[in-house]
Amino acid sequence: MEKKQVKTEGKGKIKWAATCGLLACLGEFLVEFHAANGVPGYNAVRQTISYLGHADSPMHTLVTFWGTCFTLLFLGYAHGFQKVYQGFPKAKWAVMSMVVHGLAQGMGSAYFPVDLSQPVPLGYWDLHQILSGCGDLALVGFPWVMQGYFKDRGAWGLYLTRWVGYLGAILMLLFVVSKYGGEGFLGPYKGLLQRLAQGVYYVYFCFLAMGMLRGKELPFGSR
């Protein structure tokens, strides 16, 4: 009876963590959409997400509050994720990627907003940019680590993870080029490219979270 209770409590914690992951990813999209509509003249195609939370933005308070919530939710998700994939030798690297992204994307970006007063060349290496870069690198690395888990567990999960790895990396590279390459060919689309890259990874996180809710690796198509 005691063993059964412990097992049930463990499943409950994993479902709670999966719910945290879904709330973090879906909440990020909703908050970004609301904030974009609340900043006068904001262009989601041309301007990055960071612009929504700068010090003089009317959405600064909301973005800062949500940044804290996002970090807490994503860290909760990472904790449950670790329990599910603890048998995978490289699970610690996947969890580390989630922790780094949760801290950098949430509290890092919220409490160290982009400084619009600096000239662009000098702003490349401010703390916000460094934290944002760390969060993006963590996203890029996550599916490549997870390929090692799915390679022996059915083709569907492996193909999905590879697709996320390649597409996400390409979009992230295009975003970096558009962000730091000036107003050239991709410059006017840096906001769109950032959101597309973010969307690929967050949809993948949601898929894994839905699988955790069902007690599986993925919500469907897995063993």
Rank of each mutant, 00 (worst) to 15 (best):
K4V: 05
Q5W: 12
E9T: 11
G10I: 09
K11D: 07
G12I: 05
K13Y: 15
T19I: 13
G21K: 01
L22H: 12
L23C: 09
A24S: 06
C25L: 09
G27M: 01
G27V: 02
V31T: 06
V31D: 07
E32S: 08
E32L: 14
H34F: 13
P40G: 00
Y42W: 02
Y42S: 04
N43S: 05
N43D: 08
I49L: 15
I49K: 14
S50Q: 00
S50G: 11
Y51Q: 08
H54D: 05
A55Q: 06
A55P: 14
P58Q: 00
H60A: 11
L62C: 03
V63N: 01
T64G: 06
G67S: 03
T68I: 14
C69I: 15
C69H: 13
T71V: 07
G76V: 02
A78M: 03
H79W: 15
G80S: 05
P89C: 01
K90A: 12
A91M: 08
W93Y: 08
W93P: 01
S97G: 15
M98F: 12
V99T: 00
V100H: 04
L103V: 09
Q105H: 14
G106R: 04
G108E: 10
G108A: 07
S109K: 15
D115P: 14
S117T: 14
V120G: 04
P121V: 02
D126P: 14
H128R: 12
I130V: 04
I130T: 09
I130Y: 07
S132L: 04
S132Y: 13
C134Q: 11
C134Y: 14
C134W: 14
C134G: 13
D136Q: 14
L139Q: 10
W144K: 08
W144A: 12
W156K: 06
G157I: 06
Y159Q: 15
Y166R: 13
Y166A: 15
I170C: 12
M172K: 10
M172R: 13
M172C: 08
L174Q: 07
K179F: 09
Y180A: 09
Y180K: 11
E183D: 07
G187F: 00
P188R: 01
K190N: 08
K190D: 12
G191R: 03
L192G: 01
L193P: 00
A197S: 07
A197K: 10
A197R: 03
V203P: 05
F205V: 10
C206N: 09
L208V: 04
M210T: 05
G211C: 02
G211R: 08
R214W: 00
P219I: 05
P219T: 10
S222D: 05
R223N: 07
